[in-house]
Design a protein around this nucleic acid. Structure first.
Lengths: 129, 129
DNA sequence: CTTGACTCCGTACTATGCTACGGAACCTAT
DNA sequence: ATAGGTTCCGTAGCATAGTACGGAGTCAAG
């Protein structure tokens, strides 16, 4: 078997050991079997850990990720769909906000680029447009 | 003059009074003149406050926003451009991450939608694809 | 069988961005 | 002039997501 220690798991998920322990306390990672005091993890733990990081990158909070993980063990497809759709809507909003900010920044950079003197009107670059 | 109290300013910026005070402590909003103990704000303060919220929506931290605001008072166009471009790159990354997460979620919702039994493979939906 | 790396555990601390509390002062309308 | 709503101020607390500490236990190599 390819059992690994917490250090290996953390490395595989590119997080710190303390972070793994933290996720365990939060119930995101299950406390694994021990081999004489020392925890032993396997590939499914790596998957879970990677899932957590991927979901986080998608803007899920740890609490939401916990719900998703719990959901993954059930057959409540309706709830899973509901959560997914809710999050998609939130993601769309967030993307829109970022694109708006990007536009303001682009404007700022462009206006500041074309020589000229005086200062860049940074606040105006973000004015509701 | 259209001087307003902290409560009006907060309302105009859709934030709480405590938040305005917090921003003042952080140096994001300047301590305004007093009219016998009570602070009086004007339209420029509203602009600044709105700017802070807009920049925040674009993912800037309060520290970065402080730098932008400070920059707005200088003529350091190069630095302004640099900051803007750096942030644009970050925003693009963030948008890409969100779009990737969105795709996974879409897949999840779709797969869970089409009848079938058993559970939705949530973790697999986020597997490095 | 000892050394050094790793693990365990609880607890404490950090950073970010607010949010709340509570008593005093002040402002406004009646 | 007095009641009620704001404002002022420092300080304290909260949520999120970790990060650090330190002493004890364990494990594998030499």
């Amino acid at each position: 078997m390819n059992a690994m220690t917490i250090g290996k798991l953390a490395a595989a998920g590119r997080v710190g050991v303390e972070t793994v322990r933290f996720y365990q306390r939060r119930g995101l990672l299950v406390e694994p079997e021990r081999n004489g005091g020392v925890r032993r993890y396997d590939e499914t733990d790596v998957s879970r850990l990677r899932f957590i990081r991927a979901a986080q990158a998608g803007g899920f909070t740890l609490a939401e990720i916990g719900e998703l993980l719990a959901l993954d063990a059930t057959e409540d497809r309706a709830r899973a769909r509901e959560l997914a759709n809710k999050r998609i809507a939130e993601i769309d909003e967030r993307i829109a906000a970022l694109q708006s900010a990007r536009k303001s920044l682009r404007r700022l950079a462009d206006e500041c680029a074309e020589g000229g003197d005086g200062r860049c009107p940074i606040i105006e670059a973000f004015e509701p447009s």
